[in-house]
């Protein structure tokens, strides 16, 4: 079975729905360890953290197809790259919003109601800014082939600089993240992410990542239809 048939097949979408239904039910109802500060907000792990996994996954898909486009410029590669980036932005915004809601209740004392000086927040914001710039760049070029090529070049640049930021920033000044599990905060690193939570967290990650692939594949099909109709006229 080749890759395309796999994407178009139905069974993994069924798995995705089951996983996410499980995540929703167990995420809200299953017992969670009572940690100071976090309390019940620890359930955000099943949603907020998964958004970032999905975003990085789908941005990586976009990067791979941008590289593929430069090596083999087909319309298909371009559509996959651009629609994956669009889908990634949606997950990035959701990740930011769920995180901002959460930090209001847990880091409220830092003096920032909706924002905090945290490496992960800054990394997320840079990712979003770069990919919004990617969208604007695409909008400002009319010629399809030129648009695809220039956007692919920018995509590679943006992705690499984003990774560089994520690697560099925490090393400066020993800026430690405020996130659970970092800098002595109570959290869910490998020692205290207990087995009950793992039973929900791993399916949640797989489910959300699958959902991002599914949404991206729908966007890709939609864009193909749009272009087909556009060319017919």
């Amino acid at each position: 079975m080749n890759f395309k048939n796999f994407i178009n097949s139905r069974w993994w979408k069924v798995v995705c729905v089951i996983m996410l239904a499980y995540t929703l039910i167990m995420g809200f109802l299953a017992p969670v360890p009572a940690k100071p500060i976090l309390h019940e907000t620890i359930r955000n792990l099943y949603f907020h953290v998964c958004m970032w996994f999905s975003m990085m996954f789908i941005f990586t898909v976009s990067l791979v197809y941008s590289i593929k486009y430069l090596m083999n410029p087909t319309e298909e590669n371009d559509i996959i790259a651009s629609e994956s980036a669009n889908t990634g932005l949606v997950f990035g915004i959701l990740g930011l919003v769920t995180g901002m809601l959460w930090l209001r209740y847990t880091w409220g004392e830092t003096g920032h109601d909706w924002w905090a000086p945290d490496p992960k927040l800054n990394g997320a914001l840079i990712a979003l800014l770069s990919y919004f710039a990617y969208v604007v760049l695409r909008m400002s070029i009319d010629d399809e082939q030129k648009k695809a090529r220039v956007a692919a070049v920018y995509n590679i640049f943006a992705y690499v600089m984003m990774i560089v930021f994520v690697m560099i920033y925490p090393r400066l000044n020993n800026v430690d993240s405020l996130h659970p599990g970092n800098g002595g905060n109570p959290g869910f690193n490998q020692y205290d992410l207990d087995n009950h939570m793992r039973m929900v967290f791993y399916p949640a990650v797989i489910g959300w990542v699958m959902l991002s692939a599914w949404i991206a594949s729908l966007n890709i099909r939609l864009e193909k239809i749009n272009r087909y109709n556009h060319n017919k006229i």
């Binding site: 800054n122 840079i126 710039a133 604007v136 943006a158 600089m161 560099i168 400066l172």
Partner: peptide, 14 residues
């Protein structure tokens, strides 16, 4: 400006 600002950040903070 909009395409280079986000990419300049790692350089600038260092």
């Amino acid at each position: 400006a909009i395409i280079s600002f986000p990419l300049l950040v790692p350089l600038l903070i260092t």
